[in-house]
Amino acid sequence: MKCKSAVIKLGGSLITDKSSPRTINWDSLNDSILQIYKYYKESNAKIVLVHGGGSFGHYEVDKIRKTKNVIDSFSTSLIQESMLTLALAVLKSSINSGIPASLHPAHTICKSNVKDCNYYPIINDLNNGLIPITYGDAVFDGEGKIISGDDLSVQISNIINSDCLIFATDVEGILDEKGNLIRELRRDQNINIINRNVFDVTGGIINKINKAFNSKSNNIRIVSGKEIYNALNGEDVGTKIISL
């Protein structure tokens, strides 16, 4: 099934170098954006783009939590600055490719969690032919709180009733403990998977899978960043998440 509407989550591990703090993987980022642009021009699909923190936000949160018990107001500012820096790179890549993108930092629309956000600016831009971009972020509500990009992706997919929810990563999908691709994954399956957790303060791949089960999209996939276009085009790539 080709995607008429989609939420695409660009994982931090895809668009940054997680082994090097605050380092963008420009080749991977630009390639991912060009695939989205190609599909957008061919299909005129409605697309919302969400990205993760990688070696920007995740690194900052990890560093803060090692020295403080809570994320205070100043620490929140540091996380917001690091994520905005990454978001501007995603925006720049999008504009350079020809995408009519608009940027919506999560801390400007959310209070304390993804269910307490004003999504109207995103929906309005989407309905006017733009590709809105938002991202995992930090907000301050008495204390600093993390707004997960995965949570945003699922919440937005449900609000706009998207056909597809695609999580793009730096691996081909969900891998079992032997490194083999799992083609389909259901909620009641009991499997052992490879779980990498470098600089990931929102729970890693297992948490991503559990969140994906909460999407109402018909086509939920975790795929390689190299397969974004193919996933949007309805091809059987990566791991399909069966949420029903």
Results as ranks from 00 to 15, higher is better:
206 I>A: 13
147 I>G: 05
21 P>Q: 04
236 D>F: 09
95 I>G: 07
76 T>E: 01
166 I>F: 03
200 D>G: 10
184 E>V: 06
100 P>D: 08
76 T>H: 05
184 E>D: 07
43 S>W: 07
2 K>Y: 01
102 S>F: 13
198 V>T: 15
169 T>L: 09
180 N>C: 11
99 I>M: 01
141 D>T: 14
124 N>I: 01
35 Q>V: 05
143 E>W: 01
169 T>C: 09
2 K>M: 10
206 I>E: 11
97 S>L: 13
70 V>A: 12
161 N>M: 03
69 N>W: 07
19 S>P: 01
101 A>P: 05
107 H>A: 10
93 S>E: 08
173 G>K: 03
23 T>N: 02
203 G>H: 04
183 R>P: 07
85 T>I: 09
189 Q>P: 04
224 S>F: 00
83 M>D: 00
2 K>P: 04
218 N>P: 08
133 I>L: 12
121 P>T: 11
123 I>Y: 11
143 E>Y: 15
60 E>A: 10
62 D>I: 08
7 V>W: 11
192 N>S: 14
215 S>D: 03
232 L>W: 05
195 N>E: 15
90 V>A: 02
149 G>W: 03
103 L>V: 05
221 R>S: 00
75 S>T: 12
218 N>W: 10
222 I>D: 02
16 T>P: 01
6 A>P: 01
59 Y>I: 07
59 Y>K: 00
182 I>F: 15
55 S>H: 00
46 K>H: 08
161 N>R: 15
5 S>R: 06
182 I>P: 06
104 H>K: 06
97 S>M: 11
180 N>D: 10
22 R>Y: 10
75 S>K: 07
53 G>V: 02
112 S>Q: 12
240 K>M: 09
116 D>P: 12
